[in-house]
Structures are given as C-alpha cells and as structure tokens.
Simulated scan of single mutants.
Amino acid sequence: MALSTLHNVRFAGMASCVPRRILDNLLDCPPQLKSERERLVRNIGIQNRRICHEWQCFSDLAFNATQKLLDSLQWQREEIDALIVITQSPDYLSPSTAIILQDRLGLPQTAVAFDVNLGCSGYPFGLHLLGSMIAAGGIKKGLILVGDKCASVQDPLFSDAGTATALEFDASAPPMYFDLNSDGSGYKAIMMPAGGHREPFGPEHLIPTRDENGLKQWPGAFQLDGPAVLSFSTQRVPPAVNRLLEYANTPKDAVDYFVFHQANRMINDTIRKKLGLTVEKVPSTLHDFGNTSGASLPITITARLREALRSQSKHLLLSGFGIGLSWGSCLLEVDEHVRFPELVVS
C-alpha cells in the first residue's frame, strides 16, 4: 500500500467542461430495449449522458476547461511549469496530447508536458504526481487535465468530459494524504483488447456480431466485466478509505464530503453503506452526467460542491477506482480562496 504525505502543495482551482449534446438513456435507445433500459436506469442511476460532436476530442474539452480556469485564477501562461494530461482518449497514438496542448494553450517551452494512461482512478494519481513534482522544488505552478471521450449512443454507461486542476507551491499549505494501489492480475476486467502490440488491430476486429437484441458488437471494442468490477470496487475501496483516514489521523466526521468515482448507483451505494456515510456527505452526478471516467471526481465537485466550497475551508476525501485494476484516494483541504468557475458547456 502506497501511503504518503505531500507538503507545500496548495490546491488552487478546478474547472470542468462537458459537451452540449445530451443523450437520454430512456429516450435515445432502440424500441426493443425500452423496458430493459428502464430497469437499467433504475439500477445504475444514469439517465442523461454527454457525448462529443464527431469533430470534438477530449483535448478540446480539456482546452476549454483550462482556459476558463486560467482566466479565473488570473495566472499568466509563462508562469506554468508543468502540464500533465491523464486520459485514455489521446488525439493521436503519438505524440502525447499534453505536448500538443502545451503549444495550443500558449504555455512556455520550459513547461514539462506528458501524458499518463489511466482511466477512472486517474485523478488522485494525477494529484500525487504533480504534487510530488511541486513538493520536490523547482516547479511552482502546474496543471492536471483529466478526462476521456468514451461515450457512445449504444452504451448507456459512459459520458464525455474534460477537466483542469491547478496546483501551486505554498509553504503554508496543509498536507495532502494519499493511498495509491494497483493490481494487474485483474487487467482483463476492463480493457480495450485490440490496437496495441500484443494484439494489433486487424480486419477481423471490424467484423461485427449480433447480440440477443440484434445489436452489433465488435470484437475489438471496449470490454467490461461487470460482476468483476462490482466485486473489485466494493471490496477494495472501503478498506482503502479507512486506511487513509487512519494514516492521516482524521475521523470520518472531520471530512466534509466524500467524493467517489461515479461508477454506477449499485457500486457507489454499496461503498457508501460499507463506510457508514450519509447521503448528504456523498455527492453524486450519475443521473445527469453518467460515468465520465477519470473526470468524474472533478465533474462532481464542480457540479455539486462549487457553492459550498466557495464559502469556507472544507476537507474532501476523493477516491477513484477502475481500469488496471487500480484505485487511489486523496485527503485534502480546500480553502475558500480556491477558484471553481461554473461548468463549461461546449
């Protein structure tokens, strides 16, 4: 278990961007799936999702969120020393999306920029990665851009989003506490099997089959083992949260909000109940935004906690979990001067 503490790192701001187009899981589905979708929405808690236009990439959403955040912070572009992009939806297989966004955002060439290939667990890992660089010295201000373009008309779970978070060096900042973990033995539970060197994408991956509802399925498409993900999430996350609280010597009552990756209602309700948390302390955006992969933590904070966090300092426990398998949590204090611009719709 990777328990650690970061000092001298201040959480400065956060902005989120979602596509304008909304998909309704009850209305935007084939007629033969209507009754099945109604049951599914009741179980997973997701009715509306956001989906990019064909011309939009994740980086376009992240760009808009970053522009909004920098304007709110009144940071100058030349002040930024690092740009980390966490996504599984890069513009290209190569070069990294962070390098492209460094130039597009007008950041200095002295800024270090690179991608991290993580999904639903990515946000706490990103905070730790950039925070460690700042705590080590040299880097004073940096950005983490997190999100994915993963929505489709057919799949009722995923939604598109891009987010930006700003961290800066501050010798008086309260400590941040982390618990980061991975278990590669379960990598097949959530995966894109084709397209890498282990299984190169070929013509056979373009030949669809039909499921029991007559809908097309592609052999090379994203695969998710629902029961395995449910078991992993509900068994690993609650003890990890308790372990982090114990490590930080912080009782549950001292945490104002617990923000979990928005997987689905069944998973999130089970985690909440295992931890003995009230509904009021665990904000959710599942109904309105679906599962936005690594962006779900900042989307939930932006959409549900923006006003509360602008009034006074709050303690947040953030927990992401998913592909890898990987799971990570962060306990941090957000002061009333942190910038939280309104949700950007593009």
Score class of each variant (00 low, 15 high):
residue 2 A to P: 10
residue 5 T to L: 10
residue 6 L to H: 05
residue 9 V to W: 01
residue 12 A to E: 08
residue 14 M to S: 04
residue 14 M to D: 03
residue 16 S to Y: 02
residue 20 R to K: 12
residue 20 R to D: 10
residue 20 R to P: 00
residue 28 D to S: 06
residue 29 C to V: 15
residue 30 P to D: 14
residue 32 Q to S: 07
residue 35 S to H: 13
residue 42 R to I: 12
residue 45 G to C: 08
residue 46 I to Y: 00
residue 47 Q to W: 03
residue 48 N to E: 11
residue 51 I to S: 00
residue 52 C to R: 08
residue 55 W to Q: 15
residue 58 F to I: 04
residue 59 S to K: 06
residue 59 S to I: 10
residue 61 L to P: 01
residue 63 F to Y: 15
residue 70 L to W: 04
residue 71 D to F: 08
residue 73 L to H: 08
residue 80 I to L: 12
residue 82 A to Y: 05
residue 83 L to I: 11
residue 84 I to P: 03
residue 85 V to K: 02
residue 85 V to A: 09
residue 85 V to D: 04
residue 86 I to V: 15
residue 91 D to M: 04
residue 95 P to Q: 11
residue 99 I to F: 11
residue 102 Q to R: 15
residue 104 R to Y: 07
residue 108 P to S: 14
residue 114 F to L: 10
residue 114 F to K: 01
residue 114 F to Y: 15
residue 115 D to Y: 05
residue 116 V to C: 07
residue 119 G to Q: 02
residue 120 C to H: 11
residue 120 C to K: 07
residue 123 Y to E: 03
residue 128 H to G: 00
residue 131 G to W: 01
residue 132 S to K: 07
residue 133 M to R: 11
residue 135 A to I: 04
residue 138 G to H: 01
residue 139 I to D: 04
residue 140 K to T: 10
residue 140 K to S: 12
residue 141 K to F: 02
residue 141 K to V: 01
residue 144 I to W: 08
residue 145 L to S: 08
residue 146 V to K: 07
residue 148 D to E: 13
residue 149 K to L: 05
residue 152 S to A: 04
residue 155 D to I: 09
residue 156 P to A: 03
residue 158 F to G: 00
residue 158 F to K: 00
residue 164 A to S: 08
residue 167 L to G: 03
residue 167 L to V: 04
residue 173 A to S: 13
residue 173 A to C: 13
residue 174 P to L: 06
residue 176 M to N: 05
residue 176 M to L: 15
residue 176 M to G: 05
residue 177 Y to A: 03
residue 178 F to E: 03
residue 186 G to N: 10
residue 190 I to R: 02
residue 191 M to N: 11
residue 195 G to F: 08
residue 196 G to L: 12
residue 197 H to R: 07
residue 202 G to S: 13
residue 203 P to T: 14
residue 204 E to H: 12
residue 213 N to Q: 14
residue 214 G to Y: 09
residue 214 G to Q: 10
residue 217 Q to T: 14
residue 217 Q to W: 06
residue 220 G to T: 04
residue 224 L to M: 15
residue 227 P to V: 00
residue 232 F to H: 06
residue 236 R to T: 15
residue 238 P to Q: 12
residue 243 R to L: 09
residue 246 E to V: 05
residue 249 N to W: 06
residue 249 N to R: 13
residue 250 T to M: 08
residue 251 P to K: 09
residue 256 D to V: 10
residue 257 Y to Q: 04
residue 258 F to R: 04
residue 259 V to W: 03
residue 263 A to S: 14
residue 264 N to M: 09
residue 264 N to W: 11
residue 266 M to I: 14
residue 269 D to F: 08
residue 269 D to A: 12
residue 272 R to C: 06
residue 273 K to P: 01
residue 279 V to F: 08
residue 279 V to P: 01
residue 280 E to Q: 15
residue 282 V to S: 12
residue 289 F to K: 03
residue 292 T to P: 00
residue 293 S to T: 11
residue 293 S to G: 04
residue 293 S to C: 09
residue 296 S to Y: 02
residue 301 I to Q: 09
residue 307 E to V: 01
residue 309 L to P: 02
residue 309 L to S: 03
residue 309 L to C: 03
residue 309 L to R: 02
residue 313 S to K: 10
residue 313 S to E: 14
residue 317 L to D: 09
residue 318 L to Q: 05
residue 320 G to R: 01
residue 321 F to R: 00
residue 324 G to E: 03
residue 330 C to D: 04
residue 331 L to W: 08
residue 332 L to M: 12
residue 336 E to Y: 09
residue 338 V to L: 07
residue 338 V to E: 04
residue 339 R to V: 13
residue 346 S to R: 11
